[in-house]
């Protein structure tokens, strides 16, 4: 069984974002780039599944659509433990572009389980996994919080409003994973970092794909009104304010 984990290269979650060129472009000055947190959890779960030989996972591959500047992030995934990597050499215009490029690669490379994080922390689209599944005409399961392999078949738990559902699905399929899929992201050890240097990254040249959407410009959130303080000794006054001023209950 072969697992593919799709990874996004995003600003570290503590980044305070700023925009330049008439608010049209992210100011990348000083930004630390990391593996998208949900993708990192997906990778961790894939590696956990591979660790247990009874699951029969032969390889864990990571895939990224982006320019060579993202290679440090790909190397990080290899250092954490992925066996090899795919990079499609283009700066994608939108999620559709990413999924379409990955689908092209899947014409020559076959995987049994494809894992995608529920969203990337930059555009918060939650779209690449589902799009890829539709391109590949295979099942998808979204909001997956647990993935096991039993008797060669995936056993999944997904979050629904106010609960969970257990389900089975035939291979190949796409799992769009969220919190819970792995406890903590796995951290690269020194041995992994050394090994990552020589692990293969297969670079594919992109297909011509039209963009469906375009970000025209960015806006910063409007600053909220200054905080109104209530004295701790007289905390009950807060309830009066919420009731009579904010009128929230």
């Amino acid at each position: 069984m072969k697992i593919l984990v799709c990874i996004s290269n995003v600003p570290d979650t503590t980044t305070k974002v700023k925009f330049i060129d008439d608010q049209k472009k992210l100011d990348v000055t000083g930004i630390q780039w990391v593996i998208n947190p949900w993708d990192e959890l997906a990778l961790t779960r894939a590696l956990e599944l591979k660790d247990d030989a009874s699951n029969g996972v032969q390889t864990v591959t990571v895939a990224h659509v982006g320019l060579v500047s993202a290679e440090p992030t790909i190397r990080k995934a290899l250092a954490i433990g992925a066996d090899d990597a795919i990079r499609v050499n283009t700066d994608p215009a939108d999620a559709y572009g990413i999924a379409a490029q990955l689908a092209e690669v899947m014409k020559t490379e076959k995987y049994d389980i494809i894992l995608c994080g529920i969203e990337s922390s930059d555009h918060n689209g939650s779209t690449v996994g589902g799009m890829l599944a539709e391109f590949l005409d295979c099942p998808s399961v979204t909001c997956v919080s647990s993935l096991k392999i039993e008797g060669g078949q995936p056993v999944i738990s997904r979050e629904i409003d106010g609960g969970k559902e257990s389900l089975t699905v035939p291979l190949p399929f796409v799992a769009v994973v969220q919190k819970g899929i792995a406890k903590e992201p796995r951290i690269a050890a020194m041995r992994g970092i050394m090994a990552a240097r020589t692990k293969p990254i297969r670079v594919y040249e992109p297909q011509a794909i039209e963009n469906f959407t375009e970000v025209l410009n960015y806006e910063m959130p409007k600053p909220r009104a200054a905080c109104k303080y209530v004295d701790a000794e007289n905390a009950g006054q807060l309830i009066d304010l919420l009731q009579n001023e904010a009128r929230v209950f």
Binding site: Y96, E119, G125, S126, T127, M131, E134, C143, F212, T213
Partner: peptide, 24 residues
């Protein structure tokens, strides 16, 4: 909706209908 179900269906619909998507 941009909830669990919408996140499952909207991206697939985007490919099926060749429709651009904006989520959230």
């Amino acid at each position: 909706s941009n909830n669990n179900t919408g996140k499952a269906l909207a991206p697939r619909l985007s490919v099926k209908l060749k429709a651009g998507i904006a989520s959230g």
